[in-house]
Amino acid sequence: MSRSHELYQQVILDHNKNPRNYRVIPDATYSCEGHNPLCGDHITLFLNVGADGIISDVSFQGNGCAISKASASMMTTFLKGKSSDEAKSLFKEFHDMVIGDLDPDVQETHLGKLTLFKGVREYSSRIKCASLAWHALMGALEKQVSATTEA
């Protein structure tokens, strides 16, 4: 398992098994259901944003593969305390990284440990798994009730 070794790292496997922030926020400011029509996977993202524009809480629930679940889990831990504008620019960086337009090994990013997902660019069929939670996040920030990876 050579190529997949880069993708299925311990951290990702751990987040898949024990996803962080895997819960409902009952009084969430925004929530959005993200769909991947290619595979039928879906997650619901919950978001609390304060009057200062800072994300005070973020969580998710749903059904997906290890890549989509770990991506959602790591995204939620990473976003807490960031502003919604920061979240939007992180989406862009993450998206560019997984489609191969941004290489964190040579270019500067603000993605921190989320650069673990750079391996996804080797798998065209799995890019949408990694970005599903991010599409739901963007949907929530834009006050949509549902979002799709096909947008």
């Binding site: 398992m1 050579s2 190529r3 997949s4 993708l7 299925y8 098994k17 595979c39 996977d41 997906g64 593969c65 290890a66 890549i67 679940k69 798998y123 069929s125 799995r126 798994c129």
Partner: peptide, 15 residues
Amino acid sequence: EGVHPHDIGTLLDEE
């Protein structure tokens, strides 16, 4: 159990 079919597909592809 505990493994999503997409992960099965990607990992089997390596074999």
